[in-house]
Every structure is written in C-alpha cells, then in structure tokens.
Write a protein that binds this DNA or RNA. Structure first.
Length: 442
RNA sequence: GCGAUUGUAGCUCAGUUGGUUAGAGCGCCGGUUUGUGGUACCGGAGGUCGGGGGUUCGAGACCCCUCAAUCGCCCCA
C-alpha cells in the first residue's frame, strides 16, 4: 500500500501560532480600538473582485497588475482576481453600494490580500493589512486626521520609537505629469550610466528611480529635478496645510523628496512610516491621496486619502505573549474526574484563566502543570480516609501567589461544595481541605 | 523574475577525507524513584537524511535537476 503523502502548504502562506499569533491579534485589536476613537466605520470587503477593478485602478503597467495578481476565470467565464490591496475594492464599493450618501466617508477594515511575489522576511503571498480610507474629502485636514490616526496607532503599539514618518507631495495631476516628464528627460540624458534596473524603470516608472538603492544611481538621483519646482500654487498650498496640520496635531515627520508611490492613482500627499529594524521590508505603513482613482472606476471626481499597513510587519515589532495561566487544576485522583471538570468550569465562569491537567500518567500531571507556569496549582487528590467519595484539595504555596486567584478559589469552593467552611484569613493560605461526598456530586 | 545560504526525529542540532544496523538534547508516551512537589533513573514510540536522477563496490556526505525556507535585488505594506 502506498504511503499517503501529506499535502504541502502553499508557498508564501503562513500558519501563525503562539506568540506570533498573539502579536498579530494584538495589532488588529489595537487598530480596532484606535479606529473607533477617530470614528472610522468598519467595513467588510469581498476577497475577490472583477479583474478590471484592480487593473484600472492601479495601472496596467504596475508590477502588481502585470505580474503579481492571482487572476482566474470562474465557471461563468468571468475574469476574477484575489484582491492585491484594499483601496480599489473600497472605491468600487463606494460607487456600487450607495456609500456616496455618507460622504465624506471614513472607513476601516483588515484582512488577507494576495500577491504572487517571491516570499522573504515580512513579505508573503497571502499577507494581511489593516486599512483606513477617507473618501469624498478634498481638505488637507483629512490627510492630517488619517496620519494622526496612524501615528497614534504606532504609539499605542509601542513601536513609534523606531519608526519615522516620511512625507512628500506628488502634486496635482498637472504638477505630477510635468515633474514626471522632467525626470524622464533628465534621466534619459544619463541613461547609459544608470543601473540596469533603473534603465528599465525609465520607461515604466521613472519616479521609482528616485529611491533606487543602487550606488550607480545615487549621484543622479541627488541632482534630479525636484517636485517642488513643478508644484502649482494650489498644490503647494495644500501640502503646506498638511504640514501645518501635522504640527498642530503633534505628529512628527520628515520631508523626503524622493518618496514616491508605486501605484498610478496617487496624487498630492504621499507618506510612509519607515523602520530600520525590518531589513529590506522597512515600510511599516504607507499611503497617500488618490483623487483620481474613483474617476478611473467610472465615478464622479472624488477626492480621497488612505493608508494601509502590513499586519505581519507590525507584529514583528510588537511585544505580545500568550495569557498567563492563573490556575492549574491537577487531577491526581482519577475517580474525581467529574468533580475536577465541574470545579474548573466554575472557576472559568468566575473569570480565572484556568486549565485542567487530567490526562496521561496521574503521577506526572503535577509536573506538567508546573511547566505551564501557573500562578497557582490546585491539586485534586485522593482523600486521606476511607471515604472514596471524598477528595483532598491542596494548594501548594507558590511564589507567584495572587490574591484574586486564591480568593476566587475560596469563594467558589465555599459556595458550591463546602458552605460551612469558615471564611477566615487563613483560608487564603490553606494547604489542604477534605471535601466529603463530592466525587459523585452533580 | 535574479543572486547567495540552508534543508538529518515533533523542535534545536551533531554526524570526522564517502565505509557496518543514522545519533544527542528537548518534547511526547509508559515505568521506577520522590511524596506537599518544578527531582533522578529506566524504557518506548517517532527518520524512505526535502524529493528525483547520477558517480561509486559502497552516498546523509560528491555531482546534476527539482521543491522549500532564509537573506538580499526587484516590487511593495
């Protein structure tokens, strides 16, 4: 008989467990809390969309659309795509789900996204983001509010220290296009001296040359035309107001004139929160204004701003651990199994983090309980006397002693099993108690 | 898509220039010891040495291909 082969996990997917899963959950929980402080409304989005939602939003020539999307035909012959980002889907919903009536609309969501990329640290094919968008708001205050929320989130996650906010403006559509043309002209003059990657970028995505890491490009990027020279009066004014608003909101930032966005829909404000603690995947949160996107999807001109952050990347920077075990109930007397189960449920209902050790060799259960590092251990042991229907409870004194735990145990036992047991100070230090007739008790 | 490094038990790893029946620690299961306690000892389960092909009398070690992980490039959050 052939051996059954275990299916392999799909490349770039992760099975997250233990402390890492706690860190992941902590990021999401913190995001949920902060997002409510700013009154961003929760939305749930489909994981797949018609392919054109993304191809028309992000730009046909971007890497994401041209080679990283999980696209497939469904049984009806429709081309569908697993979402590679949130913004395009939310913009689509804004137009098709009647959300325009709520404009200006602040929404937040989180969930899995899919990109066919080479996996490495902090980069996966199924990855997860938290996301916040403000749609239908043309004012710089919207940018400021969004950035203030991001800043507060990172502070509450306790990782703001290693992270800096880099800010830039790409200008309005005419400014951006003029700058783009100037960059193409400038780099074309030096094309032969540029790195192969940048020569390629020259045609597809010239802005990207600016943040090239190749030393051959560095001398030219430093001298390249700056966006500031191409900004219209309105664009300049807009960026100025964003900067002032951030100052008023107490958000620290650095100007980075080389900061650009990879996706075509970005205008005006562009920003990234960057850390040096994550190797190559240094951007922890990024976004900007995308005033042109909704029109690309067939809607009226609708200004909007948004950001997204990789949960995995944030989780790597965050401290989180699994909840400590407050009480281990050790069943050393197998006949008292049902009693121990009942006691454990009782204590959990009282809010104790509680786990029962009742399997395997009875004489080794105590040792296993100790290894779980509980604050307290409650041993359900055989009675001293002949009454096989009784149990003997022991609470060994522990260094991690916790008053709440001992008094909860006291109260629960008194209420359920031993109403006559005197409530005295010394009960909190009890080492042993014989309970009669509880093994068969309901 | 490109480059480098790595792949031996559930986990962390050892395995000498190719040489009998592939090991340890931890974990798991059981036994003994202890008996108000995180002890010690004994035993057991668990491996087609990532997969395929080749060189050789002989491959976990060498060669080729492939898959995967890690770290960079690219891209992006």
């Amino acid at each position: 008989m052939a051996k059954i082969e275990t299916p392999k996990p799909i490349r770039g997917t992760q099975d997250i467990f233990g402390p890492e899963a706690e860190a992941f959950a902590h990021v999401v929980e913190t995001f949920e809390r902060v997002r409510k402080l700013y009154r961003f409304r929760r939305v749930e989005m489909p994981v797949f969309e018609r392919t054109e939602v993304f191809s028309r939003s992000l730009g046909e020539t971007t890497d994401v659309v041209s080679k990283e999307m999980y696209s497939f035909e469904d049984r009806g012959g429709e081309s569908l795509t697993l979402r590679p980002e949130f913004t395009a889907g939310i913009a689509r919903a804004y137009l098709t789900a009647g959300w325009q009536q709520y404009a200006p609309l602040k929404v937040a969501t989180h969930g899995p996204l899919f990109r066919y990329e080479r996996p490495q640290k902090g980069r996966y094919r199924q990855f997860h983001q938290i996301d916040a968008e403000i749609i239908g708001a043309a004012e710089p205050q919207a940018d400021v509010e969004l950035l203030a929320m991001a800043d507060q989130l990172l502070k509450e996650l306790g990782i703001a220290d290693g992270v800096t906010l880099q800010l830039n403006t790409l200008g309005d559509a005419p400014s951006r296009e003029a700058w783009r043309q100037a960059l193409i002209g400038y780099f074309r003059d030096h094309k032969a001296s540029l790195s192969e990657d940048s020569q390629d970028r020259l045609e597809r995505n010239p802005l990207r040359i600016l943040d090239s890491k190749d030393p051959r490009d560095k001398p030219f990027t430093a001298e390249a035309p700056k966006i500031d020279a191409f900004l219209s009066g309105e664009a300049q004014d807009f960026f100025g107001q964003v900067c002032e608003g951030l100052k008023a909101a107490g958000v620290a930032w650095q100007r980075n004139e080389a900061l650009v966005r990879g996706l075509d829909y970005y205008r005006h404000t562009a920003f990234e929160f960057v850390t040096d603690r994550l190797g190559a995947q240094g951007t922890v949160l990024g976004g900007g204004r995308y005033d042109g996107l909704i029109e690309n999807l067939g809607g009226l001109h609708t200004p909007a701003v948004g950001w997204a952050a990789g949960i995995e990347r944030l989780a790597m920077l965050v401290d989180a651990s699994e909840p400590t075990l407050e009480l281990a109930v050790v069943l050393e007397y197998p006949a008292a199994d049902l009693f121990a189960q009942r006691l454990t449920s009782l204590l959990r209902r009282e809010g104790l983090v509680c786990e029962m050790f009742a399997t395997g060799s009875p004489r080794k259960r105590f040792d296993r309980a100790v290894k779980a590092k509980p604050k307290h251990i409650l041993v359900v042991a055989a009675p001293d006397g002949d009454d096989a229907n009784s149990v003997f409870l022991r609470v060994p004194s522990m260094e991690r002693r916790d008053e709440r735990v001992s008094s909860t145990i006291d109260a629960a036992i008194r209420k359920e099993f031993a109403p006559d047991w005197p409530e005295t100070e010394q009960n909190h230090n009890w080492v042993g108690l014989t309970l009669g007739g509880v093994v068969q008790a309901q």
